[in-house]
């Protein structure tokens, strides 16, 4: 089963997008517009789907003509490519998409052919599986963790480096006491936000166009 690596599942779907020449803004443009406005940090719908590591949505307009002597050919539909990497099994994840991120799912997939909505969860699951393409080869660098355990480890790492620096050279008994308090404080500290807190503020976007 190439869709799975360790405890990580890699889902790939291609959903045909509705073609409607009568619209001012075609469906694929509407998807793109909606996605361009959607928060990408802790407010993302995927942050709600808490088992998601990395996910993407891509409007695939066509295939590419690579030049002679290859043949030129074109797709008759545009497709919405959905790629996601998550913990656990597919049914659970799709069920959560329908029940916990239904508004988002409807806003995107309503532009796709045959999308049944999310009200009937089983119909949605069947639809997504119809659109699923089996992965041929899946690589996951880390495949024995969960999103939660990963974020917890990142929290520990940052706090520990800080603690070590601040307590360099302390007498042993004081150090031991301070460490005990640190363990407790860390345990009670809130988890890191899934999706980050300022991921839109990436350095790339500060670079003016050349």
């Amino acid at each position: 089963m190439a869709n799975v690596s360790g405890s990580t599942y890699g889902l790939t779907t291609l959903s045909p997008i509705i073609e409607d020449n009568k619209l001012n803004l075609c469906h694929s443009m509407q998807i793109r517009w909606y996605l361009s406005q959607l928060p990408r940090d802790h407010r993302s719908p995927f942050a709600q789907l808490s088992s998601t590591y990395l996910a993407r949505l891509v409007v695939m307009d066509d295939v590419v003509f690579v030049g002679h002597p290859a043949c030129e050919e074109h797709l008759k539909s545009r497709y919405l490519l959905f790629e996601t990497n998550f913990d656990g099994d597919l049914n659970t994840y799709l069920r959560r998409m329908a029940t916990e991120a239904g508004e988002f799912v409807n806003a995107v997939w309503k532009h796709c052919v045959g999308f049944p909505g999310t009200d009937t969860v089983d119909a949605f699951i069947t639809y997504m599986k119809t659109c699923q393409i089996e992965t041929t080869f899946f690589f996951a660098d880390v495949n024995d963790q969960t999103v939660e355990s990963t974020l917890n480890a990142l929290k520990t790492q940052a706090a520990l480096a800080h603690f070590m620096e601040k307590h360099e050279g302390l007498p042993p008994a004081d150090l031991q006491a301070a460490f005990g308090k640190f363990v407790e404080r860390l345990h009670n500290a809130p988890p890191l936000p899934r999706g980050g807190d300022e991921s839109r503020n990436i350095a790339q976007e500060r670079r003016p166009h050349d």
């Binding site: 993302s44 942050a47 949505l57 409007v59 660098d141 880390v142 990963t150 990142l154 990436i202």
Partner: peptide, 24 residues
């Protein structure tokens, strides 16, 4: 190009993740 990209831990590379797991 990708239209929408979500990353659960945007401030960490896979090296950072693996290091943090060892630390944990």
């Amino acid at each position: 190009d990708t239209d929408y990209y979500y990353n659960a831990y945007p401030h960490s590379a896979t090296n950072d993740v693996k290091a943090a797991i060892r630390v944990q």
